[in-house]
Amino acid sequence: MSVTAPSTRGGRWPLVRPWLGIAARLGLAAVWLVAGASKVSDLAASGRAVNAYQVMPYDVATVIGAALPFVELALGVLLLLGLATRLVAGVSAALLVVFIAGIASAWTRGLAIDCGCFGSGGQLAAGQAPSYLPEILRDLGFLVLAGFLLIWPRTPVSVDGWLSGEPVVEDEDE
């Protein structure tokens, strides 16, 4: 009931959690900012990278490819600010699940493509093998960050915290 008392759970968790939280938030922010920035300068290539998955018509792929880098940058900025962290973490998790599904499906269909996660998408140089497993494992790592923020969205130095005017506590934010 009381919001000032730290967690009833013992141990270091209540002390460590805010720091883990801010690390997850800034880490995921960096992921989105880098991913978006690497694609934003060549939107045509971004569309090609989406099209290389061969899951949607070319014209749809180009629109997704053009919109995606900007959405990624926006997610990064929102996480950096710590605004609507739970929602942004949810959207991040959903996007990552889509990416993982896309890579897995490219893998099972035997396509030889680069995931296009951080720019340089679609094409592979001759003789270059696709690296689907590392790409999926990396995205799973990012998914863990998003999952952490989904469960514990309140982190220090965030606009969310500033808006609520409350210290970081283990409250039941909806």
């Binding site: 939107l43 569309g47 629109v63 880098p69 929102l78 929602l87 942004v88």
Partner: peptide
């Protein structure tokens, strides 16, 4: 936040 994300997507489409 949703508005920001939607606007970002639309901006990308317009720029493209």
């Amino acid at each position: 936040a949703v508005v920001v994300l939607v606007i970002a997507g639309v901006v990308g489409w317009v720029v493209w």
